[in-house]
Each structure stands twice: as C-alpha cells, then as structure tokens.
Design a protein around this nucleic acid. Structure first.
Lengths: 243, 243
DNA sequence: TGTGCCGCATCTGTATGCACAGGCCCGTCA
DNA sequence: TGACGGGCCTGTGCATACAGATGCGGCACA
C-alpha cells in the first residue's frame, strides 16, 4: 500500500478512537519520524484529514486534531438524520429483498448474541456494518453514499463518548429490525421514520451517557479531557470545507 | 495565496464550468507547466479534487475529470434534497428574521430584475447566493454546511447542462419566496416542503433541458460530448470517497 | 500474418533540500 | 520593572531529484 494511504489510515483511526485527542498538534516532521516515512506522504494524509474535518489549521501555522464538543454531537446527528432518512427511503424502493431478509435473520439473533458478552458484541457490530453496506448498495447513489460515509466518520468519533451498554444495543437491534422490515416491505416512508426513531434514540442515549460520564462536557462545552477544554471552548467552532 | 490553493481553485472552476470536460486527463507535469508551479502543489490540488469527487483515478495510473451522466443529475438532486430540506427546517427554527426579511424584499424585486436581461440575471444570482449563505448561517451546523457545500459543488456542474431561461428563473424566484416565507414564519415543516418543491421543479427543468438539448445523454448515458461518451458509458459509475 | 515477449518511455510516489514566515524569547531602554 | 524591538528558531510551503511501476510499441518467432 502507498505510504500516504497508510499514514492516513493510521492517523484517521487514531483520531476516531480518541488516542489522538482533540487539540493534539499534528506536526509534519514529528509524524514523519513516528510513521517512518518522509514529510511528503504525511502532508498528503494531513490534507485528507483536513477535508474530512478531522484536523484543522490553528493560528496560521500548524494543525491540530479538530475539537469535538457536546454541540458537535447534535450537529452530526442532524446531518446523519437527513442522509440516513433519504438513504432508507431509496433503499426501500430499490433494494434486493434477499439481502435484507438475511440481515433481518441476523438481527433477530441479536438477543442471543449480545448475551454472550464481548465476542457477541463484535459479531453484532459486524451485522450492523452489513446493514449499512446493504443500504449503501441499495441506494445506487454514489454521491449519497459518499456523504453518508463522511457523516458516519464523525459518528464513529462520537461512539467513544458513550460506553457500550447491552440493553442499549438490544434496543438498537430492535430499532434496526423496524427499519429492515420497512425496507423489505418496500415502505419508503416507514423506513425513513424508523430511521429517525433509531437515530433520535441513539442521540438521547449518547447525551445521557455524556451527562453521567462527562457532566462538564454535556452542557455544550468540550467533550475532551479538561486540559483540552480551551480547544473546544468557543461557541460552535467552525469546521472546514468538504465532508 | 498559496500555490496549491490557486491550483485547486483554477482546476475546480474549470471542471465546474465544463472547460475541462469529463474524461479529460489530469497529468501532474502538464498541469504544473500550465499553472507555472511545481508538481507538489499540483498534487495537493488533485488530491482535493479527488475527495471532492471531481476527479478520479483511472486504470491504476493517471487521473481524469470525473464522468457526469444523466443519472448523476438525479443522484445529486437526491442528496441535495435531503440536505436542503434539513437545512430549511433548522433555519426556520434558528433564523434571524431580519436577514430573511431583506432577502424576501430582494426576491420580490426579481421580476423587474429579470426583465433587464443579463445584468439583472447576475444580480438575481447574487440574491440566490445570499439566500444560500443566510441558510448556512442560520442552521448553525458546520457539518451540515460542509455537506451542503459538497452537494452544491456538484449541482454547479449540472447548471451548465441547461440553458438559462427567464421564465424558469422567474418561477424559481417564486419558489424561493415560498421557502423564505416559511422560514420567516418559523414553520419548519413548510420550509422543508417548499424546498422539496423547488428542487423537484429544478430537477424537472434540467431533465427537460437535457432531453431537448442533449437527447443522447438524457436517457442515462453521458451528458458530455460524444468523444467522451466512453468515459461515462458504464452504468452508474462509482464515485470516490468523501463528499 | 498473428501473437507473445522484451525493452523503453513516461508517469506517479517518495525523499530531501531550501526559502520564507510567524512566534517566542531575550535584551535593552525608558 | 515593564514594554518594545530585534534576532533566533521552529515549522510549513515549494521545488527538485530519484526510484518504482505500468503501459505501449516494436521485434522476433511460430
């Protein structure tokens, strides 16, 4: 694989799983040393992170990992909601029934799966990933899929803000089932509404988690550790270009 | 301004106004010579065009301007519809009334403006741009604005597929007025529906223009000149990553 | 005459060197 | 003692040189 590609993948996943926290500086030389490549592919990776909205310039010189606050959580859900609703509608019209029948079976096994603990949760994640992939395939719209991928990228960053909870996953599986049923029935409106239900409940769960785990961040301030509060202190910090 | 930034702006606008047609090869050395800069900033610009979906790799080596066919027109409208509806809803809830009152006045002057011919049409475009900017400001959601910007980028590419028609612009102005009225009233549902109306009518207009001006492209084939048909001949060609 | 292989040319991917700009620190002066 | 100014230093932006890969064309052989 190309060095710039690897650098991008590494940095991206480090940002998404919060091992690089908001406000962390991203210096070209330091990264090129750490990743064992030259500055050129590092620059390329950083440029992609900027267009993804995962990094941003600071103070005219240098980059940092983008801040991510409680208000960002709401913003990301607002975008996801719009895109996933549309995707669900289109999928309901254009879907291949057989694919979603399989996913429905997998989702129906979720309760037993989730009773197994961690390994079951991994398999459940796999099922959800297949669900997303099936949606992407069904909509037959590369532009929508690209926008969705961007929204899901930021959603992935949110995921680490709330701990995994078996009961929540069980509920989520049920919500997914409602969407899949609607898609199988070819009921676009119901698919969209069931998607709204799922996303709204997910948002509420994340917000509840924030309030209990990071009370200082829930208000609208930073969801990052205290020493980074300054980075997210502004009101609705401006994100960059493409998403 | 940075050289890479200029290169990006130049290439982007050349693609959007079809002076670089779909399928046109984008070779690094040739571009660096034409733009009078070295390959490094050119590469940076090309990378951004790829994430924008305006360029794409071809055959393992080399880039070309992304194909753009009749089915792409529909796809872009599907994404725009989802995002603009959401934006209109949020704007209706969070808007500063004074801003939209001004825009309403400007839109009401549209009939007189459009009677003036080209200069009036330019001013009308300006009003629409202010409308879009007011929406972006009102939604207070950087992620949504970024996604919208991406969708509008591809929409800009569509614009050159249909000729400007005074009657259509007049109708569009009226449709915009309906949206602005709803936003001023704070009626989120109505704002969203009026947005759907506007986008649907715009899509129909573009499709009608395609059928009359480029009958060969309207079906689902290429909207680009004949010699580029091969580039867009595939069925729903896959667009790249972020948008 | 057709097909397959080899060599060349060209283009991308990466590394490195250089120049410029901005920030910070220290020194000096009021 | 505080504020202002200059110099240094760090880090980015750009250019260029080098290496690897891929596609194409020519040539030879069947």
């Amino acid at each position: 694989m190309r060095a710039s590609e690897r650098a991008y993948e590494v940095l991206r996943s480090e940002i998404l799983d919060w091992s690089l926290e908001p406000g962390t500086p991203l210096a070209e030389v330091e990264l090129s040393l750490r990743l064992g490549i030259s500055r050129t592919p590092v620059r390329e990776a950083l440029a992609r992170l900027i267009t993804d909205g995962l990094a941003e310039p600071v103070g005219g010189r240098g980059l940092v990992v983008s801040p991510f606050s409680g208000s960002d959580v709401v913003d990301v859900f607002e975008v996801r909601s719009a895109l996933e609703r549309q995707a669900a509608q289109l999928a309901a019209r254009r879907r291949d029934v057989a694919v979603f029948l399989e996913i429905r079976e997998a989702l129906r096994r979720a309760p037993q799966l989730l009773a197994l603990g961690a390994p079951g949760m991994a398999e459940y994640d796999e099922t959800v990933a297949r669900f997303d992939a099936a949606i992407d395939l069904s909509v037959e719209n590369a532009y929508l899929v690209a926008a969705l991928e961007s929204a899901r990228t930021h959603a992935a960053r949110i995921r680490r803000l709330s701990h995994d909870d078996p009961q929540r996953l069980l509920d989520a599986a049920h919500e997914h089932l409602l969407i899949v049923d609607a898609i199988i029935d070819g009921d676009a409106q119901l698919a969209a509404d069931a998607t709204s239900v799922h996303l709204t409940r997910s948002l509420h769960w994340v917000q509840a988690s924030l309030r209990s785990d990071h009370p200082e961040a829930a208000a609208a301030g930073s969801a990052s550790p205290p020493e980074l509060a300054r980075a997210a202190a502004g009101t609705r910090p401006t994100k960059n270009g493409a998403a």
